[in-house]
Write a protein that binds this DNA or RNA. Structure first.
Length: 257
DNA sequence: TTTATTTGACCTTC
DNA sequence: GAAGGTCAAATAAA
């Protein structure tokens, strides 16, 4: 694990600790001033995010049966139909089609490729229109017995970012909030940069007694920066990703914990 | 009826 | 003109 990641994890843990203390303070209506704790929490997460955003790790995720191959530069950067050059892409080879990769895809094409006896399938992000996400992927069988499928991811997913920004916007408008509980498991080994899924149990507050659990991926918080790209390839593993859009409406009072 | 997939046509690049 | 990528109408499935 890199030094930057260590620092980021440290900052996240500090923020977590401060959040707990803040929770305790609020629960006991203590006279302890809460503002410093608020600042510590916010600063910790901001610092951690900035570390992740400023580093540029190589995409990495491997298993015994599959391998991921970042394609830094294409041999002949071919402009696509929209005139974009040198699109970064990412290959993932596996014995089976890489369908369950944590994202929702919609097939939009299939084509016989001259250099292969198998057809190539084209997918785009299912939220392409809703969230203006341009991520696409191509899946093609490149080898028989044993079969090997190559999944090529093209363009970054911004649907999560947009969902997060929408969430933030909602929060800033005082309409929704997520409280994270039970996140005291050690995180350093599982959080970054591989984006091994960290399942946190989060509780959505609805008043004081109505709660709803959801699992969320650490990916949700690495947003708001173009360099997030480095963490989105390959996509996070099968998902349990939930957008706030999917949640029922609920009331939120930020001071009613 | 709505949503997802299929498939031929079209577009862009080489 | 060939090849790969995308569009969009037709079709299938839920």
């Amino acid at each position: 694990m890199s030094h930057g990641v260590d620092k980021a994890v440290e900052a996240l843990l500090r923020g977590q600790e401060s959040a707990y203390r803040l929770k305790t303070v609020l629960e006991h209506a203590s006279s302890v001033p809460t503002e410093p704790l608020f600042h510590t929490v916010l600063d910790s997460f901001s610092f951690a995010l900035s570390l992740f955003a400023s580093s540029n790790p190589q995409p990495h995720r491997e298993s015994s049966q599959s391998k991921a191959t970042p394609v830094v530069a294409r041999k002949s950067p071919k402009k696509n139909s929209h005139g974009e050059e040198g699109l970064e892409q990412y290959n993932h080879d596996s014995p089976n089609p890489h369908h369950n990769d944590g994202f929702s895809w919609r097939k939009y094409g299939q084509k016989k490729i001259k250099t292969s006896s198998h057809q190539r399938c084209y997918y785009r992000c299912a939220y392409a229109k809703d969230r203006n996400c341009n991520a696409t992927k191509r899946v093609q069988q490149i080898q028989d017995s044993p079969s090997v499928y190559r999944t090529t991811y093209v363009r970054k997913h911004i649907c999560e970012v947009n969902a997060f920004l929408q969430l933030n916007d909602d929060i800033s408008n005082g309409s929704k909030m997520i409280r994270f509980d039970k996140i005291d498991q050690a995180m350093p080994e599982s959080v970054m940069p591989q984006l091994v899924q960290v399942e946190q149990e989060a509780t959505i507050i609805k008043g004081t007694d109505q709660t709803m659990n959801l699992e969320c991926d650490s990916n949700e918080f690495l947003v708001g920066d173009e360099q997030l790209w480095g963490y989105q390839f390959p996509p996070n593993p099968p998902g349990n990703f939930m957008f706030l859009d999917d949640l029922p409406e609920f009331d939120y009072n930020p001071f009613h914990l």
